[in-house]
Amino acid sequence: MADANRQVTRQPRGDATRQSILEAAEKVFADLGYAAARLEDVAQVVGIRRPSIVYYFPGKQQLYDQVDADIFASMHEFVLKRVEGVDDPMARLLALLDAWLDFLVGRPTAARIIQRLIADPAPRGDNPVRFSESALHDIEAVIAMGVSAGTFRPVSAMHILNGVAAGALFYVCNAGQLGDARAYDPANPAELERFRALVHKLAEAAVIS
């Protein structure tokens, strides 16, 4: 009974440590990229030793995979809440784009990691959509809905992804990369709403005949 009680009390601490490792790893991978990041860097951010990370994640690839999995799973869950009950194709598309934008603004490390994944697919090996499949399915589904209903012209979901939705990544990641005179705060409400309005206009122009 005493051993069982000790196990119960240890579990929340273990879960908290694992979560702290994931959060630190997301920041380290976002800042340094997969190749340059080390488990020691993550351990330093958390305030633990490297062997403690290996207890939860056997190596850097497994930790990176879990960070990616968490980002896309969290983004998919965020989207589902935003589009729930939205049946009109255009309203659903805009709700999806808004969800992606708001998710990335609120979690800029995720935006930087996704941008790094696009630029360097090597860490994903032979399955580049292993974790991003849910995001691709989300936009394919809403475009297919609109085309089927006759609301959208026949258009490639990947064109909408690349030509409209991807702007959210640049909006978040580029804020401090354009020189002091052009710097902006992506989370500033006025700035964010101006960009959101532009995304809406681009989306409407892209799918309406």
Rank of each mutant, 00 (worst) to 15 (best):
Y34H: 01
Y171S: 08
A190V: 15
Q19W: 00
Y55V: 15
D15K: 13
I160Q: 01
V83D: 03
A122G: 02
L97K: 00
Q62A: 14
D65G: 10
Y55N: 14
A197R: 05
H137F: 07
L32H: 03
F131V: 06
F131S: 01
T9I: 14
N127P: 00
G163M: 02
F29D: 02
A37D: 01
N188W: 10
S156P: 00
A69H: 13
A91M: 09
G167N: 11
P12E: 07
L80M: 15
L39Y: 03
N174V: 07
L117H: 14
A99V: 08
P89Y: 09
E77R: 15
A30T: 02
H159E: 07
N5C: 05
D68K: 14
D70V: 11
A119W: 06
L22V: 07
E23T: 14
R10M: 11
R10N: 13
R82F: 09
Q115G: 15
Y184Q: 11
L178F: 10
A165T: 06
P128G: 03
P186S: 11
H159R: 05
A175E: 08
D102E: 15
Q66R: 15
C173K: 10
A183P: 04
V79P: 00
S156Q: 01
G125V: 10
A30H: 02
P128H: 05
A141L: 06
R82Y: 09
P186Y: 08
T109C: 07
V46K: 10
V142N: 03
G125S: 07
A73M: 10
V46H: 11
L93M: 10
K27H: 05
G125L: 08
D180G: 15
V105H: 06
G150R: 00
A141S: 13
R13H: 09
S134V: 14
A99M: 07
A166D: 07
E26M: 13
A24V: 02
M158R: 09
R153T: 08
V105E: 03
P108D: 04
L136I: 10
Q61W: 06
V83P: 05
A181L: 13
A205P: 01
Q66C: 10
P12D: 08
Y55E: 13
G85Q: 13
D70Y: 06
G176V: 07
V199W: 02
A111M: 12
T151C: 04
F131T: 05
I143W: 03
